[in-house]
Design a protein around this nucleic acid. Structure first.
Length: 569
RNA sequence: GAGCUCGUAGCUCAGUCGGUAGAGCACGUGACUUUUAAUCAUGGGGUCAUGGGUUCGAAUCCCAUCGAGCUCACCA
């Protein structure tokens, strides 16, 4: 943290949004005199963690780090990941096994619903574990809290009793926001049915402030019950629950999606009805799919976090989350490569920037003020500055060179920068892996292999024969010479207008190379062929030529596409 | 009906108390021993959506208009 204190002054005026948020919290504690700051992110545990979950925690953490920088770490902070696991199960999710098991538990608190996966005592606990594993995988610092445990332990009791006392004031906040038919039966308290265990959404007949209970009737049996609002015998409706939690835990900051703006407002009013101050907040925009539609779990559109992490690093996803949180951004496959390269260039720029600019650099926020040094490679025998290899470059390379193996791609890289290796450049190595997966899933399907005609067949056969006479470690230059020499003998490829061409020794036209790329790689363009063959290996190249002559390349590609078709789509 | 965001180069966007418009990519040209991924140099390109206001001075602050898009108004 001592490193960060250097940024304290510049941070006071930084325009980066995490600092603007953090300054709101600084003003808040100046007002309240609090000695620590609590951040909260909340989850409805009926679903699995998703890309929005990541976004909310990542962004909250950015504000947290900004706050710590503003205050030189003098004020302790905590981030609470709160799981609303006492919520009643409303419907059976589509993506779970043993649906019948869940169907029998509709209406029960999630921590009373059996675990369809059979790994935890309840569905709620199962999902809590998934949430924690998810957050841990990214190294987020947080404290987990279970709503069920909070209610049962009595941690919420004092605030719950106060809400009972202010019952009318809370209703005065809530009722105008509801339609008539709903308002007539609305109660902020949801008693847990003492017999069935269901979370009951029923009208409250009587509020007994002194006894700390509510009186209600079972709509099916008509039987009346008196239930304490404390000790986990009842829970709260969502918006009052949020408000109660803010008060009981003393939350200072919580962000929410734009769809919750009105809810934040109502919950805030309830907090004020409890004589407390609602937390500072921030409303981030929702993500859209490539057609501009809101991403929702039920629709399954947009991009999942697993998909992102298949093709790019968590850091690139953090960058995406950092940038323009108040704008509706499209979140689909095409944004990934750009996010990766922007991350790399921001990382590259960081070293050259002064304090103030660093605070505006996304990598400062992604890495909590301490971004790693960029990994660069230096060209052999060159006094040019080392540069970072971009994802775009790797994608290009992997596509034209038909690379499916990390080693081969490293071969190309080392050709340019002999000193580099997966050991010296581990992050570049991961980038290489991402590029290859991208190739397999998005580039390879678009390849179009074409069959050679008779002239091309002869030329390819001649090239193969020539390569067979060469040593396995023949240099790229030597192979390149051979490629030219083979084509020089073929009238179709002779080019007498080429630079340095003579009638006895014609140049070679582009048609030859185009044919090689189209037939062998399924691409319109490609790498320098000599270099390609040297890295790919003479034996492999010979096999590639033979496969082209045998029609194997086309057959294999068709089989590949056929196998992919049903799963893809 | 209520609220939010955005409009700057062909594209994606920076532009941090107001002080002569920037980057990356793309494109043009040139260099690198027979052009074919990776390099380098260089060039063109913007009435900062529109109209007004404040100011010595506005992409930046204020108001209005137009345009693009989103969210909420049942539940969480």
């Amino acid at each position: 943290m001592s490193d960060l204190s250097a940024y304290r002054d510049s941070a006071q005026t930084s325009a980066a949004w995490p600092f603007e948020e953090a300054r709101k919290i600084v003003a808040r504690i100046a007002r309240t005199g609090k000695k620590q700051v609590l951040f909260e992110t909340g989850y409805g545990p009926s679903g699995l963690p998703h890309i929005g979950t990541f976004g909310e925690v990542a962004r909250t953490t950015m504000v947290r780090r900004a706050f710590e920088t503003l205050t030189s770490g003098e004020i302790p902070t905590r981030l609470i990941a709160f799981s609303d696991d006492m919520d009643g199960l409303r419907k059976v999710p589509d993506n779970v096994p043993n649906k019948a098991l869940l169907a029998g538990a509709l209406g029960m608190p999630l921590t009373k619903v059996p675990d369809p996966f059979g790994t935890h005592p309840s569905f709620g606990e199962h999902n809590n574990a998934r949430l924690r594993a998810f957050l841990d995988q990214f190294g987020f610092g947080y404290e987990f809290m279970s709503s069920t445990e909070c209610y049962r332990s009595g941690m919420f009791d004092a605030t719950l009793l106060k809400m009972l006392e202010r019952y009318e004031a809370i209703q005065a906040v809530m009722l105008p926001s509801l339609r008539e038919e709903r308002a007539s039966t609305y109660s902020p308290f949801l008693p847990i049915h003492p017999v069935t265990g269901h979370v009951m959404q029923v009208a409250v007949d009587e509020v007994k402030v002194d006894a700390g209970t509510i009186v209600w009737r079972d709509p099916d049996t008509g039987k009346a019950y008196e239930t304490p609002v404390t000790g986990g015998h009842a829970k709260l409706q969502w918006k009052p629950d949020w408000a109660m939690r803010w008060v009981a835990l003393g939350i200072d900051y919580e962000m929410a999606g734009k769809d919750l703006i009105d809810s934040v407002k109502l919950s805030g009013e309830i907090v004020r009805a409890l004589d407390a101050e609602p937390p500072e907040g921030f409303n981030y925009e929702l993500f859209l799919d490539e057609n501009g539609q809101k991403i929702s779990k039920s629709k399954g559109n947009g991009l999942t976090i697993d998909e992102w992490l298949t093709y790019a690093s968590p850091e690139s996803l953090s960058l995406y989350m950092f940038q323009r949180p108040r704008e509706a951004k499209k979140l689909y496959f095409d944004v990934i490569p750009r996010a990766v390269d922007e991350y790399l260039s921001f990382l590259d720029a960081f070293e050259r920037q002064d304090e103030k600019n660093r605070l505006g650099n996304p990598v400062w926020h992604i890495h909590g003020g301490m971004p790693p040094a960029p990994e660069k490679i230096a060209a052999a025998g060159s006094n040019q500055a080392a540069t970072a290899v971009s994802f775009g470059l790797l994608l290009n390379l992997v596509a034209v060179a038909n690379v499916e193996d990390k080693g081969v791609l490293w071969g190309f890289l080392q050709r340019y920068a002999p000193g580099a290796s997966p050991q010296t450049h581990p992050r570049l190595d991961r980038l290489v892996g991402y590029a290859i997966r991208y190739f397999a899933d998005f580039v390879k399907p678009k390849k179009v292999y074409r069959a050679p005609d008779d002239v091309e067949r002869d030329a390819l056969a001649a090239l193969k024969a020539k390569l067979l006479t060469m040593p396995a470690d023949a240099s790229a230059e030597l192979i390149q010479e051979a490629v030219y020499d083979v084509a020089r003998a073929v009238p179709r490829y002779q080019d007498f207008k080429a630079k340095g061409a003579t009638p006895e020794r014609p140049g070679v036209s582009n048609a030859w190379f185009n044919a090689l790329y189209q037939v062998l790689l399924g691409e319109e363009r490609g790498p320098r062929f000599g270099s390609f063959a040297a890295i790919y290996g003479i034996a492999n190249t010979v096999k590639l030529l033979q496969n082209a002559l045998d029609g194997v390349l086309i057959r294999d590609h068709e089989a590949f596409l056929a196998a992919k078709a049903p799963a893809g789509g």
